[in-house]
Write a protein that binds this DNA or RNA. Structure first.
Lengths: 251, 251
DNA sequence: GGATGGATGTCGAAA
DNA sequence: TTTCGACGTCCATCC
């Protein structure tokens, strides 16, 4: 369902009738403002405006993946006429933020009954953690897993293990290049475990590491283990929809 | 310029001809895959596909602000026919990632000559830092600014100052709620300054602070200063396009 | 191109 | 609701 070059009144009615029914795409020339935690002015130019039934508002220009201005799901979007011109007002309740678009010209409004669907992402950090828990020898031989996502006062530990000598081993996992933030994170966890449970050391597992991260790693006497995420991806894609076999290696 | 219910061949020609000329919006029913650092399958359903002249590819469903799958600016997007069906292939060079969409049905393809424009955002952390540098008494009376965005081995310090006693004061600024990461960040900076320059202390400036962040703040003997970002916003919006007056308070 | 940190980040999970 | 951390984060900036 679409209208080409609609009159303001017609466009307003269309938007208000259908804003909860499907995805509305508006090709238009408009200016606008964003007010909220920050503030921005949108110069008058051609944009693609998208209104989703969940309240999402997106205003896209011809560049970048990120919208120029937007409001997230849960916002209230409404078309109003003001002195014959069409205004599109979007209000996000908390934090209170508004996007107001003033339409100079509407080229097309289209309604599209997009079904809701989601994608399942594979190869995330969580997948990597799950793999490592089942293959701890990749991290270091002789480790026994104590827990995954173990809460401490400093945050959640990806993997907590114990080595043959009974010392705690904190494993922090990054799916791509680990920077110094990751090292500081690991250092905090090791400190927290040492304080709460006893002697502990740390291992950073990642596909790579920045030079400054490596510098700090040595300074704090932490260990780095390099993993190829590509190999994990292959394993994940091959096994596809096969549930976890419980008859599994436990060391 | 638009085509309704185009034939695959027609759609492919349209896309390949215009993909660098303007913003292309495709209303379609398609399935797809993403392969790269991670992997995902897009189930066959209605989507809004956007191709931007800078190479950006977005596939939006009816929910959420984030696209279901995408490729960022700099990607190469191409339409190909394979056995009579239309494939849209997007290749991001580095890291190597691909999105492939298989069109079951194309309802509409529209080309929109969106001019490139950007928005200037006000009320960012940088704005807050600039304000504080000119009004250091808000942070603490008697501070002299040494530098802004001062590089250390631990990262960039938002504001480095000296107090009346000659002690260095590291100021870390957050535009909204500061969490414990911000506290750890500040702690690192203070340590780095203490090591490189001499005795130092730290002040965290934010609109609010989480309870655990406050806990660590006290543990590390750091100070918290609360600022109302709303007041800054008003000042920023009022002065509008007024350049910085150099006749200014230096204490 | 790598490194670093902000963002109206967004999003999901857990407490 | 708040807090917390990942994200295919994206993005500008600086080196």
């Amino acid at each position: 369902m679409r209208i080409l070059e609609p009159e303001p009144r017609e466009a307003a009615a269309f938007i208000n009738t259908n804003r909860r029914r499907g995805l509305i795409a508006i090709f238009c020339i408009c200016g606008g403002t964003y007010r909220g935690r920050a503030a921005a002015e949108l110069p008058v130019a051609p944009y693609l405006v998208v209104i989703k039934p969940d309240g999402t508002l997106l205003v896209h220009g011809s560049e970048k993946a990120t919208p120029l201005v937007w409001n997230p799901p849960g916002s209230s979007n409404m078309a109003v006429l003001e002195g014959g011109t069409l205004l599109l007002k979007s209000l996000r309740p908390r934090p209170s933020e508004s996007v107001v678009l003033k339409m100079e010209r509407v080229l097309e409004i289209a309604l599209f009954d997009a079904g809701s669907s989601s994608v399942r992402l594979r190869g995330t950090e969580r997948d990597l953690v799950d793999f490592l828990v089942k293959n701890m020898e990749v991290v270091e031989p002789g480790l026994d897993v104590v827990g995954v996502e173990v809460p401490t006062e400093a945050g959640h530990i990806d993997i907590l293990a114990v080595d043959g000598a009974g010392e705690y081993v904190v494993v922090e996992v990054k799916r791509d290049v680990a920077d110094h933030e990751a090292v500081f994170q690991l250092r905090r966890y090791v400190e927290a475990v040492a304080k709460a449970r006893g002697r502990a050391r740390g291992i950073l597992v990642a596909s790579d590491i920045t030079s400054s991260a490596f510098h700090y790693l040595r300074e704090y006497n932490l260990k780095f283990v390099k993993v190829k995420p590509g190999e994990l991806m292959e394993k994940l894609l091959n096994k596809s929809s096969c549930e976890s076999s419980s008859t599994d290696m436990r060391r």
